[in-house]
Amino acid sequence: MKEAVHADKVQLDYAAVLGVTSTVGMVLIAAGYIAYLCGLLPSAVSAEEVARNWHLKASEFHKVVHFPSGWEWTGFLGLGDILSYASINYLALVTVICLAWIIPSFVREKDRIYTVMTILQVFVLVFAAAGVVGGGH
């Protein structure tokens, strides 16, 4: 028996955008890290300084080492370690992008339950990404 595609259109939309965004994420992560470790760009904090303090609890670490967290990196673009950090932030945005992408598909299919559920899910993730919960250290 020939293999048939059993995924519905919304699911295929999600898969398509996930395929592209996750591949971009992996490329960004690799590029950012190479730029950081090879010293192609200056760093906000040297690797040696990070290593001297990586045994500290995160909150203590940031009292000693002034490395951005959350979205603070947006003020330090052009630095190697920040670029690497930004690529990790992007990776954590991939699911939000994919979910937001399929909301119009659910709307077009007049699927009220999953439209509302997906909007709520995006809201929860944006809530976390914005640092409304767990912000600051």
Partner: peptide, 20 residues
């Protein structure tokens, strides 16, 4: 994804450790 954002905001993600 949801939990990762809390760790990112709390400064518990270091590229030096996470990327390798």
């Amino acid at each position: 994804t949801a939990a990762a954002w809390v760790y990112l905001h709390k400064g518990a993600v270091l590229p030096l450790i996470a990327v390798p």
